[in-house]
């Protein structure tokens, strides 16, 4: 996989021309994310987490401020296929088989296909779906569909993964096993990960660092570094201390 990548946001604001008045979704976001780190973004519903991710991917332009990834604009990172995008919906193409869905990233923007030789089949193996290569998405469970989406993200060969609550619609057990798989994949490929979640314990379990956003307009009100060794045991005291810390900054921002 390509060299690791850092993300830098300087004084980023985002506004929408909503009715009846303009809506500020994000304000004064200053954030530097170290290459290869796993960073969670937490905050209440509507505080601008998805917006932040879209800004980093360059799917939206900020009203003010600058986003730089490895010193470059998001658009040039997209051109270089350095962004792996994953959303809450699996967003699979129903007329394609599992394998064909995983092949999609290679079939578009062909100028910049990575040189590393991991084929779509191997991606499926990484997410334990090799037996379902020929199946169609609607024959899979929700968890399996998200696995396919995960394999498709891997197939991009990106060094920055932007993940907007990808497992939020799954049940607790599936979710936990999938996040464990994700963690293993992250340790294998070491991309920089921006992970949006509602689940604070999950954020503590996964991340090197947790960014806490205030309710709208979203502002950074907490920045918690987590230095516990992985795999983390959520019953141990140190884990609970970090969890309380995140919760406190979230509640502090709520007033």
């Amino acid at each position: 996989m390509s060299p690791t990548i850092d993300v830098q946001l300087t004084d980023v604001w985002q506004e929408f021309p909503a009715y009846p008045s303009r809506l500020t979704a994000l304000r004064e976001i200053d954030l530097t994310i170290a290459p290869g780190s796993f960073v969670s973004i937490v905050g209440g519903s509507g505080c601008g987490k998805s917006t932040l991710l879209q800004l980093v991917a360059g799917l939206q332009m900020p009203a003010r401020g600058e986003v730089r990834i490895a010193g470059k604009r998001p658009s040039s990172l997209r051109k270089a296929k350095q962004i792996g995008w994953m959303s809450q919906q699996a967003a699979l193409l129903p007329w394609r088989t599992v394998l064909e869905n995983v092949q999609l990233p290679r079939q578009v923007n062909r100028r910049t296909n990575g040189t590393d030789g991991i084929g779509a089949q191997d991606m499926l193996k990484l997410v334990n779906l090799q037996e379902f290569a020929a199946a169609y998405p609607h024959t899979l469970s929700g968890g399996m569909q998200q696995r396919v989406a995960l394999a498709r993200t891997l197939a991009v060969g990106a060094s920055l993964w932007l993940m907007d609550e990808p497992f939020a619609s799954l049940d607790e057990l599936t979710r936990e096993s999938l996040t464990n798989e994700l963690l293993a994949l992250w340790q294998q490929f070491h991309p920089t990960v921006l992970w949006v979640t509602h689940n604070l314990a999950e954020a503590v379990r996964l991340s090197d660092r947790i960014i806490v956003l205030s309710p709208r307009p979203g502002r950074i009100v907490g920045d918690v570094h987590v230095s516990l060794a992985r795999r983390r045991d959520d019953t141990c005291e140190a884990f609970q201390v970090v969890l309380r810390q995140v919760r406190t900054s979230l509640q502090g921002a709520g007033s």
Binding site: A57, L59, S75, R78, I83, T112
Partner: peptide
């Protein structure tokens, strides 16, 4: 969104 993230 996915297609745009791939610069399709």
């Amino acid at each position: 969104d996915l297609m745009r993230s791939l610069d399709a």
